[in-house]
Nucleic acid binder design. Structure first.
Lengths: 164, 164
DNA sequence: CAAAATTATATTGCGTCCAATTAAATTATG
DNA sequence: CATAATTTAATTGGACGCAATATAATTTTG
């Protein structure tokens, strides 16, 4: 059923706030995919996926972390990491050894092959740097803005409707 | 303090360029996950996932798109969209009808239920806006920077190392 | 027109992701 | 010190995301 005010519903002053192009979340979503596409051919040479590469980045900073420790660094849980780490182990980049003093924990350690890959990572870093088209300063500024955004989103009070 | 030669082993000029915190890609990756976590409780109320919500956003802008058309809007292929759209159909948000004039194409159309959800989407938009902690201007600036980055990454010449 | 090439969608397989559950080990408590 | 509560990983199931392949419809070309 029509009336003469049909059109008004979607003429909000600023165009349509629900347009994909106006959504910050979609911009982030798209860039995340774009990074993935850019990394893929570089990481394929080593048989790595991007999340696997992130785990190696974490281990190059601090070797011998537990699964939980890696999860905290990357924001991933054991549901993601357990199978991922098994694949890294099968590929020979890390070892998984249960902590003798606390058998609940599994210590992830870089193998020599895993350590050796760090050298190649600088090449990847360079390629990605070029691909972004950002200067160091631009990249730093963008990173900073994203860190702030991340902090805000994570501080977001969880859904209160279910909290007694 | 220690002997000044101690720290030389890993001082590649600017600290460690491979640190997770210094990687723009990881900042983007983390924010994408953070957005997902923020959206989840809001979308759960409607039984939607975030990618499904993106499809609806696209259809609210332009209804009756083909699978390919939606894929171009969102940067997704049929491997992702075919099952996703079936779930949206099963949930009653869209219909999938093969184009009579070109039976290769499937036209995705919003059902009344799918159209009706647009009203609720404004509420979600508001919640997300609050959660970002960004002003309109900050969000617009960040979006713009991300669009530039996206463009650069997608323009990145494909791996030339295999091309002779 | 018939064969070949192209296009649009669907399917399969693998690797994330996350929620929920399970199992084992450790710590806290009565 | 025995049991309850907590902690850590692993597992399971559902949903992306993408590469590779398959299938059917359309267009191109010889």
């Amino acid at each position: 059923m029509n009336n003469d005010s049909d059109k008004r519903k979607d003429d909000l002053k600023d165009g349509d706030a629900l347009a994909l192009g106006q959504q910050l979340c979609f911009a982030v979503y798209s860039v995340a995919h774009a990074f993935n596409r850019t990394y893929k051919p570089l990481l394929d040479k080593f048989g790595l996926t991007y999340p696997q590469y992130l785990v190696l980045l974490a281990l190059w900073q601090k070797d011998k972390m537990t699964v939980k420790g890696i999860g905290e660094e990357l924001g991933l849980d054991s549901g993601t990491l357990s199978p991922l780490l098994k694949r890294l182990e099968t590929a020979g980049f890390v070892s998984r050894i249960r902590d003798k003093s606390d058998e609940r924990q599994v210590i992830i350690t870089l193998t020599p092959k895993g350590v050796g890959l760090k050298t190649d990572a600088f090449g990847i870093l360079m390629e990605i740097g070029k691909a972004t088209g950002c200067s160091m300063e631009e990249a730093a500024a963008l990173r900073s803005a994203l860190h702030d955004l991340n902090r805000h989103l994570d501080e977001n009070p969880q859904d209160q409707s279910l909290v007694r």
